[in-house]
Design a protein around this nucleic acid. Structure first.
Lengths: 341, 341
DNA sequence: CTGTTAGCGCGTTCAA
DNA sequence: TTGAACGCGCTAACAG
């Protein structure tokens, strides 16, 4: 039933040794063109296909890379993965995906499983700053497996990272809202355990400071990345004695929730209230009230992360140079924050 | 530098044979509890981890499954993959993803690569009915690797499928539009080379017939699954001498394009024109004009496809029973097609 | 140019 | 209960 033909099968047919077959198949120069042709022909006839597992065991390189993300079905991550796959498949690598569900423990399990499966590298977006990264390092670096963080990173020696400049993104969005004439800008931010949200928040605050505006802690709320979280948060904000006149949200979904609730409250956007989100999720563009948002270039991020991996794997010797790539975010200005037409 | 400890390393330390170590690690009964404890302890100390590649070569089972989809970043597919990964990871399987880009040739390449990488199964959504499936079969079935189609299938002996009832989905949506009082229902359909679109179209036509409405071929247009395709198509339809009063689209994006253009044209939805889409993409729900759409339950589809694989792989002997699972779609009725409040 | 040997790490005979 | 030997399929070292 199983028709897997091995190099031994074809060697036997030709009454030569398996090594010779191997050489012919791999284009070694140390072989006569006659026998090479013979082998190639026979291989064709017998539908020979190289067994990659045997090759992996022999060479120690599986041609597989692991990718760990919180959830594969989030627009951002699925786009990054697309970029990674698109780039790595060109070099013959396959992509194994794992979901961490924002759970540090699961993340470690996945990493472990990937390393035991002999992946040649791991690209991941860490779930939490509190992850036990020492353990992680001991496993991956000691094994000589390149590790690359994208988007959600943590600064570690020996680990390359590909991120966008979240500080700049937060700054850009806030500066834009200020330019539109907003004076009391609130910020809905993600969990403090993630550096990206801390950076965006820092950018927000710096923009306020640079423009001589007051940083009001009452205006900064931590939310989940969900529509309902946005509606809840804006309700709370509008109850303040001195409610804000704009919101910069770290999440497009939250921004959407804010817009929905403001409409409920009869507050006009963008005339009396401006909103900007983060992520440039596809839906922000084609809403009836298109939402201004910061683009993170997920596809490009994935491709670049893939290339960083390829550079590391190709680097001669054991000199693994860590690389820190930082992309510039781009704010897309849309109706939700455009007072001036 | 490489600290990979093997069973030989720990055998040496304990002055026993590697075979014994292997037995201890695998919980064989034919071993004294003393040495078992000893081995387990030592394995712990030496940070031993089983090399899955060696195991794969030995056993012929890699614990990897391949998944091939057109584009991983489309909402539907990323959700299916999430379901697959969620289910299979519980059984210790890893998921290798490949993108076909709707290209039959690339699809075959990926399938080939996966088989050479010794995956234990392949789950795929075929790109095209014209794919060279004989070749496909000769590779996969002869190798005894379970093959499962999800969503985009083709009926083949020996291949299990997990799909939704596209006919019923098309029927449901059309029937609903009829119930709302629409008389001239157009249909924007996807490529004829995919069975799912043919089935949805058949459902659409059958609903018309069952309700005594005329099937007008001028009302059926083939479009790409893009917003702009929707705007173009509806422009064309509205130029007809007798323009439609409703559209059932096989794509949510196309439905969105239709709605945008109708608004441009000053046509009121849902009062004077109803629209229904297909896919229940997240955005359909939270638009200001929420779009009625047929849910395909991608997450569930992925999980079920995974379970079908597990059943096949666990089935004793060589009896591979093919399984055809058909899910019922569910129409979500929203504002874009609700004349009656 | 080609054949022989060995080993990647593991589980599984067959003897003892 | 344990050990020695073997093979999964392949490539690389060493001979010839």
């Amino acid at each position: 039933m199983n028709d897997k033909t091995t190099i031994y099968d074809i060697a036997e047919k030709l009454s030569i040794s398996a090594a010779t077959v191997s050489r012919a198949l791999n284009g070694s120069t140390k072989i006569s063109s006659k026998t090479r042709e013979l082998v190639l022909q026979m291989a064709e006839n017998m539908n020979y296909e190289q067994n990659k597992v045997a090759l992996a065991l022999k060479s120690g390189r599986s041609k597989n890379v692991g990718v760990i993300v919180p959830h594969i079905n989030r627009s951002f991550f699925s786009n990054v993965i697309r970029g990674i796959e698109e780039e790595l498949s060109l070099s013959g690598y396959r992509v194994i995906i794992c979901q961490s569900y924002d759970n540090a423990e699961k993340e470690m399990e996945s990493l472990n499983a990937l390393l035991n499966a002999q992946v040649d590298g791991v690209l991941m977006s860490i779930s939490d700053l509190t992850s036990d990264l020492d353990f992680l390092l001991s496993k991956t670096i000691r094994k000589g497996v390149p590790l690359i963080f994208f988007d959600r990173k943590k600064d570690i020696n020996g680990v390359s990272t590909v991120t966008i400049n979240d500080f700049e993104g937060g700054y850009q969005a806030t500066q834009h809202l200020i330019n539109e004439g907003c004076k009391r800008i609130a910020h809905l931010r993600g969990a403090k355990s993630l550096q990206i949200y801390n950076d965006r928040c820092r950018g927000y605050k710096q923009a306020l400071i640079d423009n001589g505006l007051e940083v009001n802690d009452e205006y900064v709320l931590e939310t989940k990345s969900k529509i309902e979280a946005g509606t809840e948060a804006i309700k709370q904000l509008m109850k303040l004695p001195n409610p804000p006149d704009a919101v910069f949200s770290s999440s497009d979904f939250v921004a959407l929730g804010v817009i929905k609730e403001l409409k409920n409250l009869g507050i006009k956007i963008p005339e009396n209230f401006c909103v900007a989100g983060f992520g440039n999720d596809p839906f922000t563009e084609f809403m009836e009230m298109p939402i201004s948002s910061v683009d993170q270039f997920p596809l490009e991020m994935g491709k670049i992360a893939a290339r960083v991996f390829l550079e590391q794997i190709d680097s001669p010797g054991e000199i693994k140079i860590e690389k820190k790539v930082v992309l510039s975010p781009k704010l897309h200005i849309r109706k939700s924050s455009s007072k001036k037409p």
